[in-house]
Amino acid sequence: MANHRLPNHDIISLSAVERREIEAECRHYPKRQAAAIEGLKVVQKHRGWVSDGSIQALAKFLEMPVGELEGVATFYNLIFRQPVGKHVIMVCDSVCCWVKGSDPLTQHIGNRLGIKPGQTSEDGLFTLLPIVCLGDCDRAPTLMIDGQQHGHVDADKLDQLLLELEPEIQLMEVSDG
């Protein structure tokens, strides 16, 4: 199944654990393809992101065309088609959090880590992404780190959260004014 349009040809094989977890999802549906999104999430859970090789292996496992699975994978924003950092920070940029200062908060995080939204820090520890409304609007501004939500976040709380995750890191000096 050579595909010259894909940059890497490392057709991986799914691990036994991945196959078991995806198979459990397949059982909920009359067609294996219906487990595509859950399958992508399983792969991402174990590997951190979904590579071209993973797409090919998963498509084969789900008995669906590679191209179609690629179309699904790129549609959903929480499927990562590029490697991400050890920690993924997602800051809500929707209206309620915006009113309560999500823009300066995002800027503060970026300054602290030396990255812009969409980037990963050079040490590979943090990826910063914008995210739509997290449904936690009464605690705005909110963000999610590694799947866990935090509300009423300000610059001090954010610094504390970063240091709890990675006590060794040197936060860059910033002037948020």
């Binding site: 219906a34 992508l40 959903y76």
Partner: peptide, 25 residues
């Protein structure tokens, strides 16, 4: 229980059905 992977459009009922079938929403 089916957990999704983002995109507001999934809340539209026919897009949701496509998503539940493992397709683009």
């Amino acid at each position: 229980l089916h957990t999704s992977a983002g995109r507001y459009i999934c809340g539209e009922e026919t897009a949701l059905i496509n998503s539940l079938e493992g397709k683009r929403a």
